[in-house]
Design a protein around this nucleic acid. Structure first.
Lengths: 155, 155
DNA sequence: TCATCGGTATCTATATTGGTTACAGTCGGC
DNA sequence: GCCGACTGTAACCAATATAGATACCGATGA
């Protein structure tokens, strides 16, 4: 459990939602159904959905017949949006603090390194921004003939 | 302590080494001196140095008068090399596994996502590759007039 | 010979993660 | 109006990884 898996689980959940939308199912999907595909606990999924809903990427409805669905078309959702929604801010590369202020390097390395790290992380976010959820959905169907056939039938 | 600070501490340590080289000090620097600037334990520094030495970025010598020094000029060391040396492999963005193989999405999302994440991380590494240790040293001296003056005197 | 180093093993405190259970609130069907 | 099905949270747990600390061994040079 080195790092957080929230991002990958969130993309998984949203991909399942997109698959359902593609198949014509208009009704919401329950956290239990998504948890079954991700193979985790429904509470984990609900925690992710809460973050995704706050970011405006999904909508949810409580009560009988409730669940979650994509707030907009999968082609208008990027992986970067998902990442920012579910991962805590502050960056992927951590920095040490409490450096020695009496040392020329220790007193300045913080600013210098955070600038360099910021540029590197910006590159990663830019790359994630270029990938849409729709492309992920397309790729999963390419990898799985059964799902592709299912999608064709629904059309 | 969310993620590892090894990368930032390693860059800090190597920047200190580069500063010393720039000032004309040819002798090795002890882990205790570097630890003083980073404000950590000498053992932490030695662990980083061991990884950096294995990657061929620094050289070390045990015994009296021993210590560490840069294996080559700071302009020929990139932040990406440092990152790969001290951070465990496997990537910055983790993935969940044990997905439900009976689900069209669960059975394929692993391959699809690891491809997408791989592209994003490659972008980050490419950005780190463009930044040399020499640029970091230059920036620290820009931020700290005292160090810059010291470097001029040594010339 | 001996103090000074790196290298490494071992232990601890701590933070975060995914997971689990439990429960309040909401919704729709009967 | 009642009841079961859902979300939304809070509270807790076990596992894990981290930085840090202590201790010891071997190497080195004065």
């Amino acid at each position: 459990m080195r790092e957080s898996c929230r991002f990958s689980m969130a993309v998984h959940a949203m991909t399942v939602l997109a698959h359902r939308a593609r198949e014509g199912h208009d009704g919401p999907m329950t956290s239990a159904e998504m948890a079954d595909s991700i193979n985790t606990n429904p509470v984990i999924v609900r925690r992710l959905l809460a973050a995704l809903a706050q970011a405006g990427l999904v909508d949810t409805r409580p009560g009988n017949g409730g669940g979650a669905w994509l707030a907009r078309d999968a082609s208008r959702i990027t992986l970067d949006q998902v990442h920012r929604a579910v991962e805590p801010p502050g960056g992927l590369i951590a920095m040490h603090d409490d450096t020695n202020g009496d040392c020329p390097v220790g007193s300045t390395i913080g600013d210098v390194l955070s600038d360099a790290i910021g540029r590197a992380e910006a590159a990663l976010h830019a790359a994630l921004e270029k990938i849409t959820l729709a492309e992920i959905v397309q790729a999963t169907m390419k990898h799985c003939p059964a799902a592709a056939a299912k999608a064709r039938r629904a059309k």
